[in-house]
């Protein structure tokens, strides 16, 4: 407790008196710790901690969800995906409410088991997430997946979206808290571009409140000294070069693609699709899926929340109509979604 208090005192001494400082986190688990520890209530008034794009479930395009629902209605298909994806709303409902043959998994390895147990079915693994979940999906392909399993890839890249945000002068980001788990895969060096090209301090942090406070202090120190760099206060877990083996297999099976982000639109080079050599494993090709045009959710401002342009309580539906029990937008569904976190943290 005392150490946290010391760091907070230190943070207060580092914050400039005369200007607003905006630090963004890009990880749902970071936002969770920040909200649940009441961290914002302890920060100086001119220091803002903004939740950014930390929720892969939230940005998964409606098109992929609708395609997943439709696939699950086929008698020859079992759709498997992570729990949160089952509840994400779309104009055609959610997989859980409106799909038919689906199973929840918590690891890609379970998809293989399900494929083996159901040799007469076609298993579609709806694989979503940032680098953290891409790596295990690549790992199962590397191990060799059964013939009857294909992958509906909806993977997104963290550095690309961060670069979009950093260029947004209106947003005016002064520093990034880089995501701990993603960094473990891509390596701390992956963030060098932010300090080198944009002069934005970027510090890798873990998930304990105290560690996050340390990360914030490090960003403020760099700002004060005018020496932006890639910092790492989570060095026990995150290496400069990351998990090279994981990077290799991700690169072997996936290629960078221009993809849609829900509520935001197309972002060049921000997603991963299976390489053409692996088309036989690519659900979109195997089933000839077409892109479905996204429909707007009336009142939902998820897109702006993900981009750090609004806080959840700026949404008129927040807590009133939109709750974890009756989510209107994707940000209220996942435990990593800012609306869900803010709802629960009170």
């Amino acid at each position: 407790m005392n150490r946290s208090k010391d760091i907070i005192r230190h943070i207060k001494s580092l914050v400039p008196k005369d200007k607003q400082v905006r630090i963004m986190n890009v990880c749902g688990s970071h936002e969770h710790t920040i909200a649940f520890s009441g961290m914002r209530s302890l920060m100086p008034e001119n220091l803002e901690i903004i939740p950014g794009p930390g929720c892969p479930v939230c940005v998964c395009p409606e098109s992929d969800i609708i395609n997943a629902i439709e696939l699950s209605k086929r008698d020859d298909v079992i759709l498997v995906t992570y729990g949160d994806m089952l509840r994400v709303p779309s104009v055609k409902g959610s997989i859980r409410a409106d799909g038919k043959n689906y199973k929840m998994i918590s690891s890609p390895f379970e998809a293989i088991e399900i494929a083996k147990d159901n040799p007469d079915k076609r298993i579609v693994f709806f694989s979503i997430g940032f680098e953290t979940t891409t790596a295990p999906t690549a790992a199962i392909i590397e191990m060799g997946v059964p013939e009857n399993l294909s992958i509906l890839s909806s993977h997104r890249l963290t550095p690309t979206i961060m670069e979009i945000l950093v260029k947004d002068t209106e947003l005016g980001i002064d520093g990034f808290i880089a995501p701990g788990h993603v960094s473990a895969i891509v390596g701390a060096n992956a963030w060098n571009v932010f300090s080198e090209k944009y002069r934005i301090p970027t510090v890798v942090a873990g998930f304990e409140a105290e560690n996050l406070l340390l990360g914030i202090a490090e960003i403020l120190k760099q700002l004060k000294e005018g020496k932006p760099a890639t910092g790492n206060v989570y060095a026990g877990v995150v290496k400069a070069e990351g998990n090279v083996q994981a990077q290799k297999i991700m690169d072997k099976f996936f290629e960078v693609a221009d993809v849609n982000w829900r509520g935001i639109g197309n972002i060049p080079g921000s997603g991963l699709e299976l390489r053409v050599e692996y088309s036989k494993k690519d659900t979109k090709k195997v089933f000839g899926l077409a892109e479905v045009k996204e429909s707007k959710i009336p009142g939902c401002i998820c897109g702006n929340i993900i981009l750090g342009k609004a806080y959840p309580n700026a949404c008129k539906l927040f807590k009133k109509v939109c709750t974890p029990r009756t989510p209107k937008g994707p940000c209220m569904v996942s435990m990593e979604g800012s609306c869900n976190i803010w709802f629960k943290a009170g």
Binding site: G38, S41, L42
Partner: peptide, 17 residues
Amino acid sequence: RLKTIIGGERVLDMLEE
């Protein structure tokens, strides 16, 4: 209200479900 480990405060409400 909960006083958190780092000394922050937040409101605890009844769970909806």
